[in-house]
Design a protein around this nucleic acid. Sequence first.
DNA 1: TATGCGTGGAA
DNA 2: TTTCCAAGCAT
Length: 288
Amino acid sequence: MSDLHERVLDWYAENARELPWRAPDATPWGVMVSEFMLQQTPVARVLPVYERWLEAWPRPADLAAVSTGEAVRAWGRLGYPRRALRLHGAATGIVERHGGEVPSSYDDLLALPGIGDYTAAAIASFAFGRRHVVLDTNVRRVLGRAVAGVEFPATAVTRAERDLATGLLPDADAVAATWAVATMELGAVVCTAAAPRCGACPVADLCAWRAAGYPAYDGPPRRGQTYAGTDRQCRGRLLAVLRDSDGPVHRSTLEQAWSPAGQRDRCLDWLVDDGLVARLSADTFALP
DNA sequence: TATGCGTGGAA
DNA sequence: TTTCCAAGCAT
């Protein structure tokens, strides 16, 4: 084991945040729920929703037994509500094909809706102690800086990146799993995107990016996320109206929530197509 | 493979 | 006030 590994593992042992999905009594289902919620969403916003979610649906079968609308409502304002639909679908698949137990293999996990390479590896690693390369944005940034010497990784995962991460993965399953969560944690709280806290970094003196004098990012412009006026904002606004209503909502109520009308109507149809909204009649809508 | 999908806190 | 961005996925 290299200095890099020992430093990161020791740092994690001392500095890991206590999060409910890392608690000794966390179940694979709890880990899975957390991974869905944490996709593109900060920990602080996930925590309260996670607690309520597991209280309501402590097992996959509990979620699979309710309507998708209940899942969408409970998702609240976490964002990207299709994740709620996919988590519900994944729970259903677990009940139908895995006897109600979250599968432990990467391939079985990957086959479930809403689970891609990262999430499959993360669940297999964190919930079952399997050895997997867990390449999320944090790990990519940490390895990119510490080893490759660049401020930010490429837009998409490159072969070189995956090879690097594979080469650094400890041999033993349990150590590999801890390495995965430790490198993620380092990226989340120390080696952050905007203002890295190099003074608190256990591998600062090994860091290639630091040694090179913190060269600025040199690559294609990183895509900004415009939001005001987009379909995303429109969809979010419409769904919020339905989420905040107890029963069906008349079209006239939705019409007050957004203009222009053309975009609103198109987004409403789209939400229905996505399964996020149910059309009860020509002019009434509700959560599915 | 480049894009679009929500949301809100921080700088 | 803007801009950035936070444990990705599906297409």
